[in-house]
Simulated assay, not measured.
Amino acid sequence: MKAVDSASKFDQDRAGEYAQQSRIGLAGYDACHDLAACLLSVTLDSESEAQILVVGAGGTAQEIVAASKLAPNWKFTAVDPSEPMLQLSRESLASKGLEARTELHLGYVRDLRTEKKFDAATLIGVIHHLQGEDKKKEILDEIASKLKPGAPIILAGNRFDYASKPLFLSAWGELWRMNGVSKEEVESKRAKILHGADPLASNEAVIDLLGSAGFIEAEQFFSSLFWSAWIAKYNPNQSQ
């Protein structure tokens, strides 16, 4: 799948329902973002004037909202290829008085025209939408090129082939039913993720992918059915 195809999935209709839907389909959505902010805070020092690269920031901008509660001096550069999703982030940030601390860029990391290196990066809810390992490594390589040595990255997304975990897949469907979705709608959602996403095969595959882009010492800090999150740090001497 080309990068543009990944972006096109998040059209006006999907963007409009993203905030609610993500909190159901990705159980623990808010807790994951809160923990990510806490880990970055203790890694970078919440009193610092760090510059954070937020990749795939469209939708809720929850990475920025959570981190801003701990780190009043951090500035954010948010990148997303979907205009409807980026607009949602713009509205969310404005409602919380955070627009002055954030630069929003429509497009991809490779489109950023800046020489500055960032102190940290986040890639949350993106990796499983990219088809094939080459596309996944490409985005991590692009992020790595924008980071200072030793900078932490937060990576969160789905892993495991969905069909390989029937118990998890059934529980995921029940989670939707618990939130008022009919059985017929659940089946439609299940069919959509089985054919529309490409999660990494295992936890080990995630760590290997991070390592191939120069991210070392990866530690998993959150897991919820298919959804999981890691923190790692950039070592340019380890990239392949």
Rank of each mutant, 00 (worst) to 15 (best):
P149S: 10
A197G: 01
G97F: 01
E174Y: 03
A120R: 02
A78S: 11
A229Y: 04
Q87M: 08
G211V: 13
T60C: 02
Y29C: 04
D5W: 10
T77Q: 08
A205Y: 06
I64D: 04
E138M: 02
G58S: 12
K2R: 11
K116A: 07
F221G: 11
A71Q: 12
V55R: 03
H129P: 04
G150V: 08
E17L: 14
M178G: 02
L40N: 14
L70T: 10
L44G: 06
K233Q: 12
K117M: 06
S8L: 13
R110Y: 03
V181S: 05
A3W: 14
V79R: 02
D119K: 07
L169E: 06
G25M: 11
E184Q: 13
G132T: 05
D80S: 06
E99I: 14
A19Q: 14
W172P: 00
F76N: 02
L140M: 09
G56P: 09
A15S: 15
A31S: 12
G59Y: 09
A37N: 13
E63I: 06
R159I: 10
L44N: 11
A229Q: 10
K69I: 04
E115R: 09
D11L: 11
S95K: 10
L93H: 07
K146G: 01
I127L: 15
G97P: 01
L209D: 06
S41K: 15
V206Q: 11
E204V: 11
A27N: 08
R14W: 14
C32N: 13
I154P: 05
E47Y: 14
R90F: 11
A163S: 14
Y162M: 02
A218P: 13
S239M: 05
A201D: 14
Q131I: 05
A144P: 01
L200F: 08
S145I: 01
A100D: 15
A31F: 12
N237P: 03
K96M: 14
V55I: 12
V54L: 07
K183I: 01
E174N: 07
H105F: 00
R190L: 13
E138V: 00
A67F: 04
Y108Q: 02
S182K: 08
I154K: 11
Y234P: 09
A27T: 12
N203F: 08
G16T: 12
T122P: 01
A121P: 03
R90T: 12
Q12S: 15
L167N: 08
G28C: 08
K136D: 05
Q21I: 10
Y18W: 15
L130R: 01
V55M: 08
Y108P: 07
D5N: 14
D119Y: 03
L26W: 12
V42W: 10
A100M: 10
L35N: 08
L123Y: 00
R101T: 05
E99Y: 02
V54Y: 04
G157L: 01
Y162A: 00
V109Q: 00
L39M: 13
L194I: 10
S239Q: 13
I139G: 00
Q238E: 14
E83T: 08
F222S: 12
